[in-house]
Design a protein around this nucleic acid. Structure first.
Lengths: 249, 249
DNA sequence: CTTGCTCCTCACGCGGCGTGAGGTCCGTAC
DNA sequence: GTACGGACCTCACGCCGCGTGAGGAGCAAG
């Protein structure tokens, strides 16, 4: 007169659905007896095996891994756990990176909103595109350095710099429109400040600066849009600034 | 004479696969023109939209959410980011909880391996089952308290306690077999120690102790197996200990 | 005209089930 | 005996974001 449960009973007792039991059976994990009419009967052995299945599932193992584990009587528990932690660590890394990116974005949006120059939907899309380009052009190491650099600068400094870029472009644009000699002190001062701002973020790392150049090239149009300039004007500004740098004493 | 790319070209340029472009189109995200023979031609507008799609995807948005976002010209960037972070936070919580559980298991396995009493595959499965039962019977708050309690105790103390349980059960079993009066000092001392060990982990919290009782009831067989006892003997031991507690002066 | 590449449209696969659809079996009440 | 509600059965599609062929047509160059 041994234990014999029907699907619904076992499901209720084990805290799983009937469908899951069907699925486990189809996956070759659990093989109950059948009554002559085809109804499933679960004995003590199946109950125990189901508990093991459920527990291993709760550790994140897939049904395939569970089957392999349970069917290998001499498996190494430590290896199973370690393997699972490794898989999980990879997932956590990806999600963590995503979270950092979203956090960066959130802070930027908040800074701009608080500064009275909120990010419009269009600019937001442009911004995410730039972020994406940057991620393609920088190595993880470089990104790490940039993040540290930014944290070291602090929110207030970033706020000021963000506000300074448009002014800088405007001033430089005015000189360009006036056809000022790129070697003139006024232009030199502006370009020096430009390079200073860039250096603030790159920390003077040559590799990072080079990557920044690549990223700028890839998303020049977006950068222009972010600063309210046309692509052509942005390119002209870049060229003008470069002539100024070349004309340095 | 405007920009016109074919799938392969756009795919290469945007760093996605041709299949993905097909998929985005089927999902109603991207609608390129077609040549008379049915080949797709992507113009500047489609290139830009693809960049937006790719960037939003890189923030973790699903295709459906991307479509809703891009098709709502007045969406709120902050809301999109916040929503996405919320989703992500939930995922991170789940994975974090999983990681803690696996970490607990890993430490327990290591302690037992170092103590010379490694966990066998069978015992491991029993153990995960118990962990599962415990998780069902405790509230998250209680689990939190238990974890803190454990950290406060430290590895060495835990090691000693783990080694003490089997000895305690053996001693108490001997008294039971000898039919010693439950009120006898020797028995009282052992049961007091039992309750002390339990209290060490529950921190004396009544709610936690009650839940522990439930969990013990649910996985009594497994507890017995872990300590190398039959279910019947385990039950007898529990009953004997209870009589001792009732017989307290 | 042929070669070799790119493009096209189905359509299945994955992981772990949820969720019906349509039909059978079981235990109890009449 | 039979009628009824509930539990059970077996397909089989849906989800999410594509990967991965299969089988065939278009396209540029020799």
């Amino acid at each position: 007169m041994s234990l014999s449960l029907r699907v619904g009973q076992l499901a209720a007792r084990a805290g799983v659905t009937v469908r899951a039991l069907h699925h486990y059976e189809a996956a070759g994990l659990l093989a109950p007896d059948r009554t002559p009419t085809g109804h499933r009967r679960y004995g003590a052995a199946e109950v125990e095996r189901l508990q093991q299945i459920v527990s291993l599932r709760s550790l994140g193992l897939g049904l395939d891994a569970i089957r392999r584990t349970l069917d290998a009587p001499g498996f190494d528990p430590a290896a199973v756990v370690a393997q699972q932690r490794a898989v999980l660590a990879a997932d956590l890394d990806r999600l963590g990176a995503l979270d950092r990116r979203l956090g960066d974005l959130e802070r930027l949006l908040r800074r701009r909103a608080e500064a009275g120059t909120p990010i419009s939907p269009d600019t937001f899309l442009t911004l995410t595109t730039i972020m994406n380009d940057i991620l393609k052009h920088y190595t993880p190491d470089q990104l790490q350095q940039l993040a540290e650099r930014r944290d070291a600068l602090g929110d207030d400094a970033i706020r000021e710099v963000e506000a300074e870029w448009p002014r800088l472009f405007a001033s430089l644009g005015a000189e360009m429109d006036a056809a000022t000699d790129p070697a003139a002190p006024a232009v030199q001062t502006l370009v020096a400040r430009w390079d200073e701002l860039v250096a603030m973020f790159t920390g003077g790392d040559a590799g990072i600066e080079r990557s920044l150049g690549d990223a700028w090239e890839a998303s020049g149009d977006q950068m222009a849009q972010m600063n309210g300039l046309s692509s052509e004007r942005m390119r002209a500004l870049f060229a003008y600034a470069q002539r100024a740098r070349d004309a340095q004493p």
